[in-house]
């Protein structure tokens, strides 16, 4: 087999993969260009109870005391400091211990889930679990702990 033939066949496989992949996922591609996944790769059509919120909206919910804040970071990080009044559901630890099934929250409760900030993903993953558990109003505060502390908003710690 010549090198030319080999490269030609590889190009054909790549071309086919690209055409099929983009063709079948065309609707996702459209949503991407419309900015649907700017906060994370989650389909809000599928997860209808999930909404992304900004620092301002999170602050408003905090001041109105209308929502339960859930911190999805590891237990130790939570203890070092968290949004005042937040409860800790350490997503990775619970996932490892298969404890996510044990979470119970009333479906009508408004919850705000957060983790470190835009670099982390556990808030989105936890929000998906809460959606499957039937919660109707889940807000993901994507700016998370970093934005909250930069904004000088109330925090507390267990240490």
């Amino acid at each position: 087999m010549t090198l030319k033939k080999l490269l030609l066949q590889i190009a054909l496989i790549l071309f086919l993969g690209i055409i099929i992949g983009l063709g079948i996922n065309f609707s996702l591609l459209q949503k991407y260009f419309l900015g649907d996944f700017r906060f994370g790769f989650i389909s809000l059509d599928e997860y209808t109870s999930i909404m992304f919120i900004t620092l301002g909206e999170a602050e408003e919910l905090f001041l109105e005391r209308n929502a339960l804040f859930i911190d999805s970071r590891p237990k130790e990080t939570f203890q070092e400091g968290h949004i005042m009044g937040a409860v800790n559901i350490p997503f990775e630890e619970y996932k490892k211990e298969k404890a996510l099934d044990l979470i119970f929250l009333p479906p009508e409760e408004t919850v705000v889930v957060y983790c470190d900030g835009s670099e982390c993903n556990s808030s989105v993953e936890l929000a998906k679990v809460l959606h499957k558990k039937g919660l109707l109003d889940i807000r993901i505060f994507f700016g998370g702990w970093v934005e909250w502390t930069e904004g000088g908003l109330p925090v507390s710690s267990e240490k």
Partner: peptide, 22 residues
């Protein structure tokens, strides 16, 4: 979107023998 399809095409090609070296 693209990589999984390339993986499947390569897998099928290895099993069927068509383009197996590439």
């Amino acid at each position: 979107l693209v990589l999984p399809w390339i993986e499947v095409i390569c897998g099928l090609s290895l099993i069927s023998g068509i383009f197996r070296y590439s």
